[in-house]
Amino acid sequence: MTRLAYALFALVLAAVALPSQGLTHALQPGYLEVQALGDDDYRAFWRRPDVQGRPMEIDALLPEACTLRRGPEPRFDGAGWVTQWITACPGGLAGGEIRIEGLEATRTDVLVRYEIAPGQGEAQRLTAKEPAFAVPRAPGAREVLVSYFGLGVEHILEGLDHLLFVFALLLLIRDRWRLLGAVTAFTVAHSFTLAAAALGWLIVPGPPVEAIIALSIMFLAAEVLKRGDGPARLSERFPWMVCFGFGLLHGLGFGSALLEIGLPQQEIWLALLAFNLGVEAGQILFILVVLSVGWLLARILPVLLDKATLIGATITRAVPYAVGGLAAFWFVERLAAF
């Protein structure tokens, strides 16, 4: 990959990762949880994004069979507008429609987690194009596989910190076989901790994990800057070892996200496998896109690179600083969340 390609991708990632405050509020997701209590009773928890001090103009609507389809007036909890209520749904949720009114007029999405029966959690993502869904009576293996694979792909592509870590790996490791070994070690490691965290076997608070993930990106950026100064560093000689260690940490982040979504009790291991495969598919897709665009730029702009050696060297030097600087910002921000 050319130096110019590295620079362009780092700038794009930085631009996406640091949106304006107003846009961030506009794109925050909503969250609806419908928990089965038994005897056709359900507890609903509904969080709406905050837009300039007011709740976003969307509202959750439960199936028609429910005695109380929508909740009372929301209250602000410091991050969003929340409300919760108890309702009875004779016959259960299965076959009924859950809708987010007004969602079609927004640019946000809503994660819906619901239970057909106590302990049997499922998840569904609603968007402006699909603001409602019919609750299935009994999800089969195919539905679980497709749904959780899609959630895995979505999670990795929306996880800018994880993508920036992979991008830093591309900057650090030039040999394709060593890169393949490092990515494989990263995959194996985060598969272990993803499963352990999602199943509740390993519980670690979210903010410290997220802060350490940012720290791992800072470490790789520093290694890129120090590459070529003296003897080969540990990250250059044994990149798989470094990636395995950091993969264990990143897996905790993946697992905590999956724990929030919930796992279908009848297909736990299939859901775990599908989510993990989705994460890997998203990761491979990102790597292929970066390498492909780098290859394309190398063919289109070879003359520019040859004639602008000094500029190219300056940009190449600036890229790891940009990556490390963004990671440092995240690190401080996440420390404050403790």
Rank of each mutant, 00 (worst) to 15 (best):
Y42D: 03
L18T: 02
G22M: 04
V82L: 15
G71A: 07
P49R: 00
L68S: 13
L13R: 07
L18R: 00
R54W: 06
G38D: 01
F76H: 15
P29T: 08
F76C: 00
L18F: 08
Q35W: 08
L27P: 00
R70V: 07
R70T: 14
W85S: 01
R54F: 07
P49S: 06
Y6W: 10
Y42W: 10
C66S: 11
L8W: 07
P19D: 07
W46K: 09
F9M: 05
G71R: 10
G30M: 10
R47N: 06
V51S: 08
E64N: 05
R54L: 13
P19Y: 01
A14H: 02
P29E: 00
R54E: 09
Q84D: 14
L8D: 09
R75C: 02
A79M: 06
I86N: 11
L4W: 07
L61T: 08
R70S: 15
P55Q: 05
L18H: 04
G38L: 11
D77Q: 11
G53Y: 14
A10K: 07
L27D: 02
C89T: 08
A14R: 04
Q84P: 04
R54A: 15
L32A: 11
W81A: 06
W85G: 00
P72H: 07
A44T: 06
E57N: 15
I58C: 04
A17H: 06
L4Q: 07
P74V: 08
G30C: 05
V34K: 03
E64I: 11
L23A: 12
D59A: 14
R75H: 12
T67H: 13
V16Q: 13
Q35T: 14
A60P: 10
